[in-house]
Structure formats: structure tokens, C-alpha cells
Design a protein around this nucleic acid. Structure first.
Lengths: 191, 191
DNA sequence: TGAAGAATAGACCGGTCGGTCTGCACGGAG
DNA sequence: CTCCGTGCAGACCGACCGGTCTATTCTTCA
């Protein structure tokens, strides 16, 4: 039971944070949704901020799992592995009702107001880009990418554009912007 | 004086909305900053939501001014005009301390919770993309763009990626992601 | 069995939120 | 001059916010 309550809170928090954002997410509402008394919440988390940061950590666990799954698939050429990761993310967004990316949402909302969150989100993006970059470097060495391209810049670019497309797909409730972005990026990067 | 108070509120609101987002923007704080009593605020705006929507309208006036300025400059080739617009935006972001784009910020924060804002922001993006698309169409007809490219899709793509880069530049407090994105886009789109 | 700490439980708190209400100042129209 | 609409002014309101506190229950292990 120990973990279960905390886990339940984090899980529900993930969904609610995605939909409501940070400031519009009420502790009260979270507690009602998870049938948890307030005492439990503040037993497991020292504050709302602490809670949100842990939700992000949990989100990143899933992200890294997705990265393992796609980038680790060595039966695919490296460029396809990268694309695979984002297509997986797109499918996840679909299942969630196109609410976009938690990092983008929280990042936009809080980076102007909280240094803690600003740093946190930037660190998460860097971590993702770093892993993508490794795979792009492999592609470069295979000749799938022009040798003069910097894989790290290319990876950050991809992540950034992805976040923009994710916002747009959220606004539209549709995956089109995500697919269009991937098509453009991979045809342009490879040539 | 009639306009002045409302104008002052909208202007301050623009900055505060950009930094704090919607939910973290307190009416109280806005009133203190602008030395305005509460009665005046609710005389001019029927609610906080109404206020924010008008702030967005005001923001869009500036955006369209920027579009007029850049896209209307017929001494430049159309592709350069488009790039010019985004470079202008980048400079504006710099002057504001790299807080990114209001549309992106508000869009991310509220689109999961308010249909009104979701639609509003999507409409704004479409308006920008539409004007960009016109210019891209001109470029296509001149042969600066491959004839099989759809200017509208290309324009939306550009706007989307820009928003992602704007978020990242906000997280970093630096323009690099914006420039990297523009470089990539224009070299890829044109070839 | 019993002591101790983890976890649950929810009443309660001060502060702040968005929003309302009433009254006053002012300026042009009759 | 009065009248009336517009804008300024701020006290006030109930609701809700995140967070605290104390008490109780469960779990574990000596």
C-alpha cells in the first residue's frame, strides 16, 4: 500500500497536469479524483511544487522507456529509429486525446515564473536530445546524414520543432502537424 | 483619458501574461502595477477571460504590423521577406527578455481547459500562417520554391516549428534555437 | 504483545482569488 | 442649473487555494 497511494497520485497527476497545467491543477481536485485524503498527499510530497517535479520525473521514465524501445531497435537504420520514437510519441498523444507534451506544457507555463521548473524542463529536453543525437551520429557515420552536420544541433532542432508541432496538434486535436513536421525534417535532414 | 486607462491595462497585461501566463496572473497584481483601482478594471472588462482575450487581440495587432512591415517589403525576394518577419520577432523576443511568444504560452496553458482560448489561439496561428502562405506562394511562382510544394502546409509548418523554437529559446534565455530553426528551414525548403 | 514509525484521515487555517457593489467626479446636453 | 452616462475608486464578498495540525489506523519487528 505504501507505494500504491503515492503511485496513484503521480499517475493521476500526470494526466491532470497535462490537461490543466500547473496553476489550474488543484490539490483538492486531485485528491477527490484519487479518493485520497489531504494528509496522505502531504505525507508523500512536501509541496505542490515537489509533487509536480516528481510527476515530471515519472513522465521522463516513460520517455526513456520509449527511447530504449525505439533507438535500441538495431534492426532498423538509425534514422528510422529516431523517427520511430517520435511516431511512438505521436501515438501516445493520440491515446491521451492530443494534449501534447507535458514538458512543453509545463515549460511554457512556468518557465517565466519559476527558475526551478525552467531548469528542470530544459534538463529533460537536453536528456532527450542527447540520446537522439547519439543515434544521429551513428547515422552520420553510416553516411545516412551529410558528414558536415552536427548531430547534437540536429537533435535539438528536432526536439524543438517537435514541441511546436505538439502544441499545434493540441490546438487542433489532430496529429497532422506532427506528421507534417516529421516528413519535412527527415526528408530535409537526410538529403 | 478614457482610452488611456484601458490601454495601460492592456499593455501591462501583455507583459504580465507573457511572463506569468494566465492562471498565475492576478488581477490584484495587475492593478498594483498599473496603479488602477479594481472598479476601473471591471468597468472596461467584463471578466479576466475577456481581458486576456483582448490582450491577445492587441498582441495580434502588433503581429500584423510586423507582417505588413516584412512581407510588404517588395524590394526583397519573397522568401527573404518571410525570414525577415521571423527575425523581427526574434529581436522582439530579445527585447522582452526571451519570454517567447504569447500565443504559444497561452495556447499551451489553456487549450486543455478552455475551448474559447483554444479556438482563439488556433485562429491567430491560422491568420499568421495564411499571410506567410501568400508570400510563399509568390516565391513558388517565381521558382524560388519547388513547384510541388504546398505553400499553406509549408507556412503552417514554419509557424509550428517557430513556436517550438520559441519555447526552447525561452527555456534557455537565448536566441540560438530560433536561428538554428530558421537556418534549417530555409535551406531545406528552398533547395 | 507492544512499541514505533509509516500512512491515512480530515478539520482547520490564513491568504488570496475573481468578482460585485456602492458611491463619487466629471463633462457634455437639455 | 440639472440630468445622465462614463469612468474612477475602493471596500467588501464568498469561494477556494495550498498548507498545517492533530488524531487515528495499519504495519512491522523486537
Amino acid at each position: 500500500m505504501t507505494r500504491s497511494t503515492k503511485e496513484r497520485l503521480l499517475e493521476a497527476g500526470l494526466g491532470m497536469l497535462l490537461q490543466h497545467g500547473y496553476n489550474d491543477l488543484g490539490i483538492q481536485a486531485l485528491l477527490e479524483k484519487t479518493q485520497t485524503p489531504k494528509g496522505s498527499f502531504y505525507h508523500h510530497f512536501k509541496s505542490k511544487e515537489d509533487f509536480a517535479l516528481q510527476v515530471i520525473d515519472r513522465y521522463m521514465v516513460d520517455v526513456h522507456k520509449g527511447l530504449d524501445l525505439s533507438l535500441g531497435n538495431s534492426s532498423l537504420p538509425p534514422l528510422d529509429r529516431v523517427r520511430r520514437f517520435f511516431e511512438l510519441s505521436r501515438d501516445k498523444y493520440r491515446d491521451e486525446g492530443y494534449l501534447g507534451c507535458l514538458l512543453g506544457g509545463v515549460g511554457q507555463e512556468l518557465s517565466g515564473v519559476s527558475e526551478v521548473f525552467r531548469r528542470k524542463i530544459e534538463t529533460c529536453f537536453n536528456a532527450i536530445a542527447e540520446r537522439v543525437a547519439e543515434c544521429l551520429e551513428e547515422a552520420r557515420q553510416r553516411g545516412d546524414l551529410p558528414p558536415d552536420r552536427d548531430p547534437r544541433k540536429l537533435a535539438n532542432l528536432l526536439v524543438d520543432c517537435w514541441e511546436g508541432a505538439a502544441l499545434r496538434s493540441r490546438l487542433r486535436g489532430a496529429p497532422d502537424p506532427l506528421d507534417a513536421m516529421l516528413d519535412f525534417y527527415f526528408s530535409a535532414a537526410a538529403r
